[in-house]
Amino acid sequence: MKHVLYILFLVISLHTFSSVDLTQQAEIFYKNKNYKGAIESYEMIVKQGVMSYKLFYNLGNAYYKNNEIGKAIYNYELANKLKPNNDDIIMNLRIANQKTIDKIESKENFFLGAIKTGLVNYFTTNGWAWLSIASLIVCLVLAFSFFVSGSVSIKRLSFFTAVFCFIVFISSMVLGFSALQSKQQISFAIITTRESKIHEEPSTTSNSKFSLHDGTKVSVIETNETWTNIKLENGNEGWVKTADIGLF
């Protein structure tokens, strides 16, 4: 019984390695160019079930320095998903993408689609939430002043600004919901192994159509524990082992 308790204690103490300690440790590893150590520490933080864009960004950096481009890009994408339009993430992602092997001709992005994704990614979901709250408060304050004020000019001004704020509120809610959806939905994957065979069917015995190399971004059509149906930007489709990719 004593032993069991002891082991239990050990397990718990291992698990409760404070993430602050691990962060500091990883930082030192990274500074001393021990990238493997940094990766290990950051991965331990990830395993604790917590996340932040900084964590994925740092982990991506460590993988990049350790020459694991696929995993680096995957982590940058995760970071980008948590915090769109961050300069550092976009820059490093671009540099890492230059090192990928596969060059796939991408089809032209539709103009409206590009605008929409651009708008949705303009803020994080949290950003949209706060924007909706702020715009609603301003809208209500103005509406109140519209009702209360005796002056016609103030009434007119507050009416129009209140309407504008209300539009902002509605659109921030709509865009926030679609940002939330794209955040929770798995729609892309990054190849994280050096070379991965793309099969015609979800079984190892089926013919492999082509192979992809680490760092390549693909769209996900459907996924389960062992196989994932992917689609390339040039329209090619196939099945890849889920273990070979990082979904996000």
């Binding site: 962060t23 917590v50 960004y57 950096n61 550092d88 540099i95 979901t125 949209w128």
Partner: peptide, 21 residues
């Protein structure tokens, strides 16, 4: 070269605490 890692507090949060909605 890639930019340096973010130092200091990583602002870690639980996976499912989504503020929006």
């Amino acid at each position: 070269d890639i930019r340096y890692i973010k130092t200091g507090n990583l602002d870690l949060h639980k996976k499912d605490d989504e503020f929006f909605s």
